[in-house]
């Protein structure tokens, strides 16, 4: 097999038929009940969330949801959340804390939506608030980057105790196109940018930003989803056990240190 380039992984991460957040939620958990709305403005379809059980344990699950077909993808705004999406996520996370449920998030977004309404409703504030609040939540948080993890729009649900990436997922400051357009003044140099950005799972592991890479079958996660789910299940189980053994204080302090030392 030829060497997979960073750009190949970008393409794999964006593949329309790649498993999306809801696929993971449905396979990893039982009894999923989706909960809607931010109690303030609306319900953002680019972020799904709710309660489910993981091997019998109630958990809160949240994911950035893209569509697997063009029409659904449009309904989901291509997985680009508006502020109300992040606020819904925060509401569900605070709820999880109240009822002492661990939180598992799935990251898959080209970025927070850069629209007029998003600005009017405080996209920056919504993301910032999530970062601040997530750092102090007194329940375990596991964040899984399943596809594209782009910019603050990804980070807004990715401040956790364990950060995991699928082998072909990317996690970056911006899309390779955006990066190329800013730094090379040429968005067509995205392939080159993908390489230079060091945004693959392997790169992020080397930086010490992520804790674990979940192997994917050749051709991407969709080719043998069962295998991916099995590995994820094992990892979530192990992590929850480790994290639940910590006191609330230790949990929050360790999370602080985790991000404190990322420089």
């Amino acid at each position: 097999m030829a060497k997979i380039t960073a750009w190949d992984r970008v393409m794999l991460a964006r593949k329309i038929d790649r498993p999306k957040a809801l696929n993971y939620i449905n396979e990893l958990f039982d009894d999923f009940i989706e909960l809607h709305g931010d109690r303030n403005f609306g319900d953002d379809k680019a972020i799904v969330g709710g309660i489910a059980t993981f091997e019998g344990l109630p958990v809160t699950v949240i994911g950035e949801q893209k569509g697997k077909k063009a029409k659904e993808n449009m309904e989901r705004n291509f997985g680009m959340p508006n502020p109300e999406g992040y606020r819904k996520a925060l509401r569900l996370m605070k709820q999880a804390e109240k009822f002492n449920r661990p939180i598992i998030t799935f990251i898959d977004t080209p970025g927070a939506y850069p629209g007029m309404g998003a600005e009017e409703r405080g996209q920056g504030e919504a993301i910032a608030r999530n970062l601040l609040e997530m750092s102090q939540l007194e329940v375990p948080i596991i964040c899984i980057v399943i596809g594209e993890g782009s910019s603050g729009g990804a980070l807004a649900i990715a401040v956790g105790d364990r950060i995991v990436m699928l082998e072909n997922a990317i996690y970056s400051i911006l899309s390779p196109e955006g990066f190329a357009s800013i730094l090379y003044k040429d968005s067509s140099k995205a392939k080159e940018a993908a390489e230079d950005m060091k945004a693959t799972a392997k790169d992020l592991k080397a930086f010490g930003i992520i804790d674990k890479i979940i192997k994917e079958p050749e051709g991407g996660a969709g080719e043998d989803f069962e295998m991916v789910i099995k590995e994820l299940k094992t990892y979530i189980k192990k992590s929850l056990k480790e994290l639940k053994a910590l006191s609330k204080k230790e949990l929050v302090e360790n999370r602080y240190e985790k991000f404190r030392t990322m420089c």
């Binding site: 601040l132 910019s151 980070l155 400051i173 060091k198």
Partner: peptide, 23 residues
Amino acid sequence: GARMQEGIISLMQMAKTSSALAK
């Protein structure tokens, strides 16, 4: 905004500074 030339490390500064503000 975040500094492109430092990639993902720049992104993480957002979490780092916000966590410090939480404290």
